[in-house]
Computed example of a mutant assay.
Amino acid sequence: MTSPLLLVTGATGAAGRHVLPALRAAGFRVRAQYVRKAGNDSGIDWRRWDFRESLDFGPLVDDCVGIIHLGAEIANPEFMDRVNVQATAALAKAATAAGVRYFGYASSVVVYGAPHEADVDESTPRLDPRRSISAQYYAEPAVLAYARSKTLTEEALEELAPPMRVEFWRPTVVAEPERLLEARDWSTMRKVLCLYRRTQYIFAPDAAAAIAHLTTRGLARPPGASIEAFNICDEACGRYRDLFRIGFACTGDRRFHAPPLELPYIADLIRNTRHSRRLALRHGLGSLNVSNARLRATGFTLPTGVPAAFKRALAVHA
């Protein structure tokens, strides 16, 4: 019996590099979309496709039972509407025409912006893209544009209501081993500002495992139309102060020695108020308690977890 075929967009990106082997290990055949250079796995059907050049996705989705849509523009706001919003809607329409049963969309935790409540689950309101994003989220302009495009894309998929199972995956900060160690080299001032903040890291292979799990689960369920969101996060990600403590204990590296001074959350509140010119209690990413209870309820557990991944990174890269 032939294994089911999945299309993975953005297959050579930071997430795709881990998702492809996870899907292959789960027994799927993979067709992988890329823009610049194909990967090295000869068992994958590599297809070059640039969303800025064509949105005629018929040849890409042909014969696929599911789509793992990771492709996105994350840096250049000029292309975000085309690559993130229009391309996703066109891909969903092509998937509908081809009879695809499952559509997994890699959204982001940025769709929550800076909410009024620190505890975040999938019922937390999203940003309102018709209002000023900077009034709802404190971030650099490119991140604000990215957050707006991700929110608009979720809305577009809801409006399309395609006759298949659609899932929004909202990861926090997907981190490779080197990313887990980056705070070691921060300036003293940045360490002081960030010690209290939650890292919001999720180890990249753990995020890939969650995507493979949800895809397998979604395709195993009876055919039907539905839309569901899942936060993909690590509730045990810890705060930066925890990473510094573990890093110093494991290595003795003075760069992991945390400064004695730590600014409380009120400093971020003041900064946000100055930026938005509004006196409003909003919680930035570092103070959010993002829940993955819905993901865990499907039977998924993180294979590694940030604490263990951090110690591994210390052993290999520190």
Results as ranks from 00 to 15, higher is better:
T2Y: 04
L5C: 05
T12M: 09
A14V: 10
A14R: 15
R17K: 15
R17C: 10
V19H: 01
A22N: 04
L23F: 11
F28K: 02
F28H: 03
R36M: 05
K37I: 04
K37A: 05
G39S: 03
W46Q: 01
R48D: 02
D50I: 08
D50W: 06
D56W: 05
G58V: 09
P59W: 07
I67R: 07
H69Q: 15
G71R: 11
A72C: 14
A72D: 08
P77G: 08
E78M: 02
R82Q: 13
R82F: 04
V85C: 11
A89K: 10
A89C: 08
L91H: 00
A92W: 00
A94Q: 05
G99C: 09
R101C: 05
Y102V: 15
S107L: 09
R126L: 08
D128P: 05
A135I: 07
Q136F: 05
Y138V: 15
A145M: 03
A145E: 12
A147F: 00
S149R: 00
S149W: 00
T153V: 03
E154N: 06
E155C: 04
E158W: 06
E159K: 15
A161Y: 09
M164K: 08
M164D: 06
E167R: 00
F168E: 04
A175L: 10
A175G: 07
E182Q: 14
R190P: 09
R190C: 14
V192G: 14
T199P: 15
I202V: 11
F203E: 00
A210D: 03
T216W: 06
T216A: 12
A220W: 03
A229C: 01
N231Q: 08
L243C: 10
I246G: 10
G247E: 05
F248T: 04
G252Y: 04
D253K: 15
R254W: 03
F256A: 14
H257I: 06
P259H: 07
E262C: 15
A267K: 12
I270N: 06
N272D: 14
N272L: 10
H275G: 13
R277H: 15
L279D: 11
H283D: 03
G286H: 01
G286Y: 07
S287Y: 15
S287L: 12
L288C: 10
S291Y: 00
T298P: 14
T301K: 13
P307H: 08
A309I: 03
F310S: 06
K311D: 06
L314R: 09
